[in-house]
């Protein structure tokens, strides 16, 4: 059944009709949109300067790997320094221009993350993980002087050390 304009006994929902009419009769672009886009662009530039450009000037001297907020090991001066409690859960393999560290996140050694420390580029990157379907940590870009890689399902984080004055304690051996 179609309603005719002559039928007057309609109880029109003013707010929603106004909103629907407003959007459906609007255009794809208005001149005022430029103010919104300019505001967004300035905001993004501000974020880039504060969180990308300024931190990249600081020099990191290694990487720290934490699990659930606790330091597991850190990689500095081409060595892996492991906390005592995690000694059995970490395997280190030397490869060309780097070190590949496998950290098991459970005692059965079924779940793991593989972290590649690139010595030539001084970067860290997660190359393999059994965390989740989407594997966000593997898609995280390599970090160097700034940034962080976080694996939410395993509670694992990798962050640069030295640039922010952070020096984790070490109670374990050196590989």
């Amino acid at each position: 059944m179609r309603y005719k304009s002559s039928e007057k006994k309609f109880n029109i929902d003013n707010h929603n009709k106004t909103c629907l009419e407003k959007i459906s009769s609007s255009k794809l672009f208005y001149t005022r949109d430029l103010f919104a886009y300019a505001f967004v662009a300035l905001f993004v530039v501000f974020l880039i300067i504060v969180f990308v450009v300024l931190p990249s000037n600081k020099q990191a001297n290694g990487f720290c790997v934490k699990k659930d907020g606790q330091v597991v090991f850190y990689f500095t001066n081409n060595t892996v320094k492991i906390q005592n409690d995690y000694d059995d859960l970490i395997e280190t393999v030397g490869i060309q221009n780097g070190v590949e560290v496998t950290i098991y996140t459970d005692s059965n050694k079924t779940n793991f993350n593989v972290i590649l420390f690139d010595l030539s580029n001084k970067t860290a990157k997660v190359t393999k993980s059994t965390c989740s379907h989407s594997k966000d940590c593997c898609y995280s870009p390599a970090i160097s002087n700034s940034g962080i890689i976080y694996c939410a399902p395993h509670g694992l984080s990798i962050e640069p050390i030295g640039s922010g004055g952070f020096t984790p304690p070490v109670t374990g051996g050196i590989k």
Partner: peptide, 15 residues
Amino acid sequence: IKYTSRLSIIAISVT
């Protein structure tokens, strides 16, 4: 949506 007129739904969505 409520307080701005002449702002496209795309600009609102982007913001």
